[in-house]
Write a protein that binds this DNA or RNA. Sequence first.
DNA 1: ATCCAGGCATGCA
DNA 2: TGCATGCCTGGA
Length: 286
Amino acid sequence: MVELFFFEIFDAVKTFECGQIFRFESNDSGKTYFGALEDRIIKITQKDPHTLIISSNKNSNLEKIVNSFFRTNDNYLDMQKSINIDDLMKKVVNYSNGLHLLNQDNFECSISYILSQCSNIPRIKRNLKDLGKLYGKSVIFEDQEFFLFPSRSDLINVTEEEFRDLGFGYRAKYLRNFIKNYPIFLGEPVLDSEIFNQKLQNIEGIGQKVADCIQLFAYGDISHFPVDTWMEKFMIKFYNDGKKISKKNIRELGSSLFGKWAGYAQEFIYYYARNHPQFFSSKSKK
DNA sequence: ATCCAGGCATGCA
DNA sequence: TGCATGCCTGGA
C-alpha cells in the first residue's frame, strides 16, 4: 500500500474521466478507481482532496511505479500559475483544478490513441476493453476479475482481419503495423523531442496528433500540445478571432502561449471545451 | 435517414 | 504547403 500526498488538489474523477486514459473505472461514483498499470492491477482510493491511497495485487516496486504514473514531481501550482495567462485561462484552470496528467504505459497508450482517430471515448473504451479481454492476462483482485493490457507478444500474431472483426475499421491496419514495428522505434536512444516526434510519425497510422498524444501521455513530454477538433475549435474561437488556421499553426500557438506546460494547458482546455459544448457548435465553423 | 466523430494517407494544385 | 477525399464503424 502506498499513500500519495499532493500539496495541491488531486481530483480523481477529473483525472480519470477527462479522456486522457481509458481503462480505469469506478463503481462508486469516483471514490475508488481500479485499473491495470503495467504488470498489476491498482486500486486508487481518494482519501481526501490531497491524498490517494494506492493498493495492488503486486507490491514490488509499487511506490516507484505509482509516483511515475501520477507524476508526483510536477510542480502543479507553478504550472497553474504559468498557464493562467488571461481571464479565459483563469476560468479554464479553475474549472480543471485537481486534474492531473498521468504518465501511461507507452505500448497501451500508443494503441489507445491509434484507435482514437475519428472515434469517440465510449467506443475507444470498448475497443480497449475487448483487447484486454481477448488477449490480456486475467488477474483476480479483491474478488473481481481484471485484465492486464496485452503485451506486444500477446498481440504479435493477431491479424488485421481479427482487429477488423473487433470493429476497429480502417484502424486495424494501423494497429497491426504498429505492433509489428513497435521495437523499431522503441529501441532507439532518447532523442530530441521533435526528432522523436518525427520518428513516431514515420509509423504508418501515426500522424501529428497521435504522435503528440503519445509523447504527452506516455513519454512524459508535457510540452506537447496535441491539436484535435476540440482544440481547433477553442483556439480558433478564443485565440484567433474566429478565423480558421491550420492545426500546425494551432500547435505552434499552443506551444508559444503555454511553453513547457503546454500539455497541461491542452488537457485543461480539452476538459473545459468538452464540458461546454454550447460554446463550440460544430456547425458554426469555417 | 444522413451526418460526422479526439485522424491519417494520398493525390492534386 | 494547403486542401479535398476515402477510409470502417456506430451513435445521434
